[in-house]
Computed example of a mutant assay.
Amino acid sequence: MAAASDLVNGGVAALQIEEELEEPPEQKNNAAAVLALAPVPWLAAVAELYERREKLGEGMFGDVYKAWDRVLERFVAVKRLSGRTDDRFVKTSLGYFAREVMSLAACRGHPSVVQLLATYADCGRADGDCFVVTEYAGPMNLRQYMDVRRLNGEPFDEDEVRDVMEQLLAGARHAHRAGILHRDIVPENVIVDMDSARDDGASGGRMVYKICGFGVSEPAVQAEKDDSGLLAASSPYRAPELFLGSKDYDGRVDTWSLGCIMAELVVGDGVPFFGGTQDGEVFNEMLHVVGTKGIVTWKGLERVAPREKAARLRKMGRGERGYLKKKFPPEVLSPAGFEVLKGLLHSNPDRRLSAAAALRKPWFRRRRFFSACCFMPQGGP
């Protein structure tokens, strides 16, 4: 069995090797062209304090690098939010920057949320970049980790799924108590690493999962919630009330997303549980799986759905009970685990489990101590 650090890095290498083998020649050439692009220069104050290392990832607004803090002598993650529009990134508004920074600051102090360390803004130019410095929480996100586990034939067992969910629900509960809705809890916004420290002094440890990516977060109490076009309507992790255009929602939009992640971990096929490329496809798939009985009893339905659409949903609700239980029989997920999953994926937001309520369920009262080998994929393809 390989060492924990080797398995993490080896897992990433295995994933990259697998992707290279599957890429057609033209995609390889395109990828090479992208890699040939020099990194965008950092603000002088940032470059002076932090030595840029390997790239951790990028999104629609900018990129993230691992960096060495020259003063405190530790690794950090530096997220650059692009102040200009080009072929790679969408221009980041100061509002987006402030939204992420304020949310991270409000959520400080919990082990399942990445910790904010510093912020910088290039005010010397109209299209200057902004920078968010956080702790370095790990070498891969949950999407990459799930892919590595799948490629190595190491699916998550129920005890591991419970551990993932306990940490993520605890992080969401902390954010909600701080008055923050994340609104984009997806596998790409969960960082994964191994905590090598153990209370008994033995080698190895448990996997640690931390929520990041607070760019579209917002205060939980807000008279008129504004999505600002930032939430992808077709996201397979988006709650049904958001598909219907509701602006009267709470932290249970996040627990729906966590229910989607839980289902994906149990199934282990490498694709989002509610698949689809268009918003209608995703919405129809989720109602087909969980049923329409919940959403048609939601008191807010009339406020967000036209009368004819609400009537159509109610007509469907008489016969569309869903087949979630058939997808997760006892041999796949214990009754206690299914109780949590069903509660998180309740289509009626008023009856959906909050993070705090989910953590009080009997499923989380069971404990098992893991060794490192229970979590990490084998190094190599």
Rank of each mutant, 00 (worst) to 15 (best):
A197E: 15
R365Q: 12
I17A: 15
A170V: 07
V78H: 00
G62D: 07
L104Y: 00
L104W: 00
E58N: 12
E285V: 13
G317D: 05
L301P: 00
T92Y: 02
I295T: 03
T297G: 06
I185N: 08
I211T: 02
K79M: 08
V8P: 00
F243Q: 08
G204W: 10
A358S: 07
P272V: 05
V46G: 01
K293H: 11
L301R: 01
R125W: 02
A31I: 13
R360N: 12
P219H: 05
V114W: 01
G300N: 07
R162Y: 00
D129I: 10
G259H: 04
Y96K: 15
E23K: 15
D159G: 12
A358R: 06
H346D: 13
L104R: 03
F364P: 00
L116Y: 01
V148A: 10
E331S: 07
K325V: 10
F369H: 15
P335Y: 01
D227H: 10
K210L: 04
S112P: 00
P329M: 04
S371P: 00
A170F: 04
C107G: 02
K309A: 13
E302H: 11
G83Y: 00
T134E: 03
G83N: 08
E73H: 12
A32R: 11
S354Q: 06
R368N: 04
E241T: 08
F338P: 08
F370C: 07
S354P: 01
G153K: 06
A32D: 11
E158V: 08
E166G: 12
A178C: 15
L231G: 03
P349Q: 09
W42A: 15
D147I: 05
D87E: 14
L81W: 01
C373W: 15
G379E: 11
V164Y: 01
L35T: 13
Q144Y: 04
L244S: 02
A47P: 07
Q222N: 03
V34A: 15
N152G: 15
G322N: 05
N9F: 02
G276L: 14
P329A: 11
N152E: 13
G280I: 15
A263Y: 02
A263P: 06
T119E: 06
Y237W: 09
A38Q: 15
C212W: 02
L81I: 09
I185P: 02
G171S: 11
A233W: 05
S354M: 10
I261L: 09
R351V: 01
G128D: 09
E154K: 14
V253Q: 07
G268E: 02
G380D: 08
V132C: 05
N152T: 15
Q378I: 12
G300S: 03
V216N: 09
V71M: 10
V71Y: 05
V271P: 00
R108I: 03
G171R: 10
L35P: 02
L313S: 04
D269C: 09
A233K: 11
F375D: 08
L287G: 11
S112M: 05
E23A: 14
A357Q: 12
V40R: 15
